[in-house]
Design a protein around this nucleic acid. Structure first.
Length: 209
DNA sequence: CGTGAGATTTCCT
DNA sequence: GGAAATCTCACGT
């Protein structure tokens, strides 16, 4: 069993956390017998101070207050009237900084993920390819909703385990997806060519091109 | 392939 | 009132 990322990990600088998260394993215990797991392949940074795209940019509200709390907790928000997305709160406390998890590669509990997303376990390869390659998709697969908002990632319901990149894998950076402001910053980190990375829309710029 | 509508919460103007 | 850190489905090419 790999080691669980501890509070110290989440108290690092947010850029360093974002660089290290790809390759790490997101796990969620549903029951003592059912643990969902997947490898993080894509994240985005949002910060309060200089980022107009961040929910925290205009200060604390009832919705975003978790972002301002202890690092290493989960910030879950509801958007577009339909979807939940989950973030990892980063430090320091009092500042609204967090990292959005945008894509994971399913590893364990896949039948349960399929049931959470499509209503029943399925072997449909088309559905499987759409299981967790987007922020709202992976939340649905992991059954993460507003009840998980504020959940401690150093607890025993949901956590992240240490992971690494395989030989040949590279973390690249680009501008972020689906935002109108702050879209000049290279704050999206993803494993190049991994099929579970969400599809970039138009207007995305890549670093080193 | 592409575009567009609809799901309907939370926040800001 | 309108936009938003999204996704799915329908329809036209």
């Amino acid at each position: 069993m790999k080691s669980i990322l501890n509070r110290k990990f989440y108290e690092q600088g947010i850029n360093q956390i974002a660089e290290r998260l790809p390759g790490c394993i997101l796990k969620r215990k549903m029951t003592p017998d059912i643990v969902l797991s997947g490898r993080i392949v894509e994240v985005e940074i949002y910060t309060q101070a200089e980022d107009p795209a961040s929910h925290s940019y205009n200060g604390k509200t009832a919705r975003n207050e978790v972002m301002f709390g202890d690092p290493g907790h989960l910030y879950v928000y509801f958007t577009y009237g339909m979807h939940y997305c989950c973030n990892i709160v980063c430090g320091p406390e009092g500042r609204g900084d967090a990292i959005l998890i945008r894509g994971v590669e399913p590893l364990g509990g896949i039948d349960h993920m399929m049931a959470n997303r499509f209503g029943s376990a399925s072997t449909d390869s088309g559905k499987y390819a759409q299981l967790t390659n987007g922020p709202a998709k992976l939340c649905q697969a992991y059954a993460i909703d507003k009840q998980m908002n504020g959940e401690d990632l150093c607890g025993n319901r949901i956590w992240v385990e240490e992971g690494k990149l395989f030989p040949g894998e590279t973390v690249r950076r680009s501008t972020r997806i689906g935002i109108r402001q702050g879209n000049e910053m290279f704050r999206r980190y993803y494993i190049q060519d991994n099929p579970w990375v969400s599809k970039p829309g138009k207007g995305i710029k890549f670093e080193n091109e």
